[in-house]
């Protein structure tokens, strides 16, 4: 069986889900309300059906002469493990404007991989994926920052990295400068900033672009309480703006505050797509399993 066949087979078979999937109050309710078939609508949406992805595992094998000799002498396993690792399988959801989906799961469950796939970084190997609408991935807010450039120059540099022209950025500069509260420091090189100042600038730049879809992965690091409040306020503004938000996180509090549904992952498989409290309970149950 080829890797794609086996992946498809595993996508057909539901991932081993502890009791929630298929229950009356869980994910199927949404599925009933919304047609899960291929959407032909023009509003912003993200739709995945039986999406799966594998990573090759043999890339990081050691190819040393020593290993080859041991193998030839029969002192070690003759066959390298060439089976690809299934990182995502059976992902099904349909997000529409106003949906704010928290992606939960333990370390290595596939949260970041799924977020990257939504952002268009990884493309699905099997299954179908449709995305309509402008997207801003906030997976790494430091992208494109150059320590030798001033804060102001970095605003333009970042714009170039995400494909915006100078004119596009000019309309945003005032808003960014105001939000990051750096004062005259905005004209000094970023390498002279404290880490909190860099985080403020990066966050202001990254969130200055309005989009239909936001993809966030555990991003609030440095910055004091005042900044955190302002950042949270900005995210709340999106929430009122009928956008689609994906938030990968370990924090139950953040999910309760910002999300209105939850997607639980376990070993790359989608365990549930359900209401917030249900999803958090399920995730905590999974965390207790060995």
């Amino acid at each position: 069986m080829s890797e794609i066949d086996s992946l498809q087979a595993s996508a057909e078979a539901a991932p081993s889900a502890p009791n929630v999937e298929g229950s009356e109050s869980g994910q199927p309710r949404r599925a009933l309300l919304r047609n899960i078939g291929s959407p032909e609508i023009d509003e912003a949406h993200v739709w995945m059906s039986k999406v799966g992805l594998t990573f090759p595992t043999h890339l990081d094998d050691t190819h040393s002469i020593k290993v080859a000799m041991l193998r030839a002498a029969g002192l070690t396993s003759k066959h390298r493990n060439k089976r690809p690792k299934v990182v995502l399988r059976g992902i099904n959801f349909h997000a529409r404007p106003g949906d704010r989906i928290g992606i939960l799961g333990r370390n290595g469950a596939g949260k970041t991989t799924l977020l990257r796939m939504i952002a268009g970084i990884y493309e699905p190997e099997v299954g179908r994926f449709q995305r309509n609408g402008s997207i801003v991935p906030l997976l790494n807010i430091m992208l494109g920052m150059d320590g030798f450039l001033s804060g102001l120059e970095n605003i333009y540099a970042r714009g170039r990295y995400i494909g915006l022209s100078k004119v596009d950025m000019e309309s945003r500069v005032n808003d960014i400068v105001e939000f990051c509260e750096l004062g005259d420091d905005i004209l000094r090189p970023v390498r002279t900033y404290s880490s909190g100042m860099v985080a403020r600038l990066a966050f202001a730049i990254a969130t200055s672009v309005r989009a239909d879809i936001y993809v966030m992965d555990e991003w609030i690091g440095a910055g004091d309480a005042r900044f955190f409040d302002r950042a949270a306020k900005r995210v709340e503004n999106w929430i009122h703006d009928d956008t689609i938000v994906f938030l990968g996180t370990h924090s139950d509090g953040l999910v309760r505050e910002w999300c209105n549904s939850v997607l639980v992952l376990e070993r790359g498989g989608q365990v549930a797509w359900c209401d917030v409290e249900e999803g958090i309970a399920l995730k905590n149950k999974i965390l207790l399993e060995p």
Partner: peptide, 30 residues
Amino acid sequence: EDRLYVERVQSGKGQRVAEALADIKWTIRH
């Protein structure tokens, strides 16, 4: 002004050529 680009991504088998063309198109535009 706020909606910078709208794109539709659909993935599946037999769409590699279309995706490759979209990839090149994006690059030329940028």
